[in-house]
């Protein structure tokens, strides 16, 4: 297997960045002497967790398509699990949820991985969203029925449907970019996550005016503008790894920054509405897995479709399933 040298350069760059942040954290803690502040200790566990996340992501990218789909299947599962754990669901929703976790989630990823693009785009918005309220209604409990249905559908939409657009980037046919799509996935994840990191740094250093104190007290205009511009600069500087020229690369980075910010904001509002600060304890320093993925949830589908639109991508070829999958679903008819 030949690994793309540009991909290696990207990974090397990220590792250099991690080394730099570890060194800076170390110096800050050394300078604080015997009693580093909780914010510094949190910074240290965040950087450590980043090493782990980059290692896992890097290995999966190197292993290729199947490993990446497997990883996102697992991430969807873990994210949805965090979401459902914190959203009170009554007994009547039990069987609906079993179906969601053990049938809808794997089927959707099967359609994505196959790939059966036509089914990938409609399976959740049509079939799953018809099924969910029907199954809950059959359970016979009408108490807050609409709210319960919406709650489950929201989780399925964000944690499964939206997130699965990230590995789907591997299939996006782009002229002159065949077999290089892993870099595009890397680009999206890198720019969106670095936008979060830059916003965090600028917010800590210069944050004054809060954007939405009730929803997400950590988000400030200074953080958003300083961090967002830095992320756009990073994305523009990496234009050579993408199918975009420098200016479109800057625009697409801006899309990622804005969609990422809004995803984080909305998921934060969801968190507050159920009365918690973090989605879980899965990643030390960061909170839950969903706390790390929240900015990617909106960015992934928006980036996917805008990129497809920009290159006039025709997905019609993949709107029918591969032969083997079609014969399974036709039941010989």
């Amino acid at each position: 297997m030949k690994i793309d040298p540009e991909l290696i350069a990207l990974v090397a760059g990220v590792i250099a960045l991690l080394v730099l942040s570890s060194v800076i954290t170390c110096i800050l803690i050394r300078r604080a002497g015997g009693a580093p502040s909780p914010a510094l200790l949190n910074l240290r566990s965040r950087v450590r967790a980043w090493w782990g996340m980059v290692a896992v992501f890097g290995v999966m990218v190197a292993l290729g398509r199947n490993a990446l789909f497997g990883m996102y299947l697992l991430l969807s599962f873990l994210a949805l699990r965090e979401y459902i754990t914190l959203s009170p669901t009554p007994r009547a929703d039990h069987r609906t949820l079993s179906w969601v976790f053990f049938v809808i989630l794997p089927l959707h990823y099967l359609f994505a991985w196959a790939p059966w693009y036509g089914m990938f785009t409609i399976f959740i918005p049509v079939y799953a969203f018809v099924f969910i309220p029907v199954r809950s209604a059959m359970a016979g409990d009408v108490d807050r029925f609409l709210e319960r249905t919406a709650r489950i559908q929201w989780g399925v939409l964000t944690c499964i449907y939206f997130l699965s657009h990230l590995p789907m980037l591997l299939y996006l046919p782009i002229p002159g970019y065949a077999d290089q799509n892993a870099k595009l996935l890397f680009f999206v994840v890198l720019v969106t996550q670095m936008s979060d990191v830059f916003q965090y740094v600028f917010g800590k250093l210069a944050g004054r005016r809060k954007i939405a104190p009730n929803v997400s007290p950590g988000k400030t205009w200074e953080g958003l503008i300083g961090g967002g511009l830095s992320a756009v600069a990073l994305g523009t500087a990496l234009w050579w790894t993408t199918p975009f020229a420098p200016f479109p690369a800057a625009m697409m980075s801006l899309v990622l920054v804005i969609a990422g910010f809004l995803g984080g904001l909305v998921m934060s509002a969801v968190k507050r509405s159920v009365g918690v600060k973090d989605w879980g304890k899965g990643i030390p320093g960061h909170g839950g897995i969903l706390d790390r993925l929240d900015s990617l949830l909106f960015a992934a589908p928006v980036f996917f479709h805008l990129t497809g639109f920009y290159f006039g991508t025709n997905m019609a070829a993949a709107s029918r399933p591969p032969q083997w999958l079609e014969s399974v679903f036709r039941l010989g008819m």
Partner: peptide, 8 residues
Amino acid sequence: EFMLVPVM
């Protein structure tokens, strides 16, 4: 119930 739901 016999089916699990994987909440934490």
